[in-house]
């Protein structure tokens, strides 16, 4: 089937209700249950998923606590641990004021101009 690049742009949508990001979760499930060879390119607001020190804990609605909360960074570490390469768009980090030294390790930051080459190294591009 070749290698797929998942481009994840929409971020923090239902991460609390789902306890994770649905696109990243689906990538993990495709790896675990379908052994899909893939990479993930985070762009737009999704680049913020890479920032260390995020904490969504403590949410309580009425008497119900959200426990465990989403831990997106741990999920990205899990994906990386399963051999999934992670990329992030440099300009999207810069426009949001996210310094590179606050990112999790092992992420390749790419310029927008390099994205066509990244596409060319994959057989399928799926946009989330």
């Amino acid at each position: 089937m070749g290698k797929t690049l998942n481009v994840v742009e929409r971020a923090y949508h239902a991460t609390l209700e789902e306890q994770d990001d649905v696109a990243l979760w689906f990538s993990l499930a495709m790896k675990v249950q379908g052994n899909l060879e893939q990479s993930i390119l985070l762009r737009g607001n999704a680049v913020n998923y890479l920032v260390r020190g995020q904490d969504a804990g403590g949410l309580r609605i009425g008497d119900l606590a959200l426990d465990p909360p989403p831990r997106i960074l741990d999920d990205l570490e899990m994906l990386k641990g399963k051999g999934i390469d992670l990329y992030a768009v440099e300009e999207d980090l810069a426009s949001r004021g996210v310094p590179k030294d606050r990112l999790m390790s092992g992420v390749e930051v790419v310029k927008k101009s390099a994205i066509p080459d990244l596409f060319a190294r994959h057989d399928r591009i799926w946009y989330w």
Binding site: L16, E17, L59, I61
Partner: peptide, 13 residues
Amino acid sequence: PPYESETTTTAFR
């Protein structure tokens, strides 16, 4: 709808 956005969680809060 449920499980689609953050806005509903914010509304619950």
